[in-house]
Amino acid sequence: MVKSVRLSPIGYWLFTLTLLLPSAPFALADDQVAVTVQRPWMRAVPNVMDSTAVYMVLVNSGSAPAQLVGASTAIADSVAPMITTKEGEGLKQVVGMKGVDALEIPAHGTLVLEPNGNHLMVMGLKEHPKEGAQVDFTIKLEPGDHEIHLKIPVQKKPVK
């Protein structure tokens, strides 16, 4: 049993990196993804909201593109990758969001999930973790049906 511990940002980083270590020797194989996660956070939302969003930066150090195909957490019914859409011009422009099957992390590139942009929408919240809490969160990547387990801090504002 692993005791849940509160980690400083650096500790958190090291912890995340440790999780990725076992996959490192296979990182060059075609069906493996060489993706690391930076600055993940979940937006703290009031109890009246039934959804929230998770943001992070995914860094792909591999020579093949990887896909973020989904995620899961015990505190919500489902999580889906979303893009922000803009239609129309000027004042008539409407901004919305749209579910997508996958978000690509280009080879030797990054995928930025950030407020107002691409994000992971967490739907059907069963709990409303408060600012400062940590949430277990698993992201799913392709190819290789790869999973990365994260502990994500809950915050009102982005990780600086």
Partner: peptide, 17 residues
């Protein structure tokens, strides 16, 4: 609208600041 998970809370968080 309150079911908005990305744009609305981002705007309101910024306006709060």
């Amino acid at each position: 609208f309150t079911h908005c998970a990305n744009i609305c809370p981002t705007s309101l968080t910024n306006l709060t600041e």
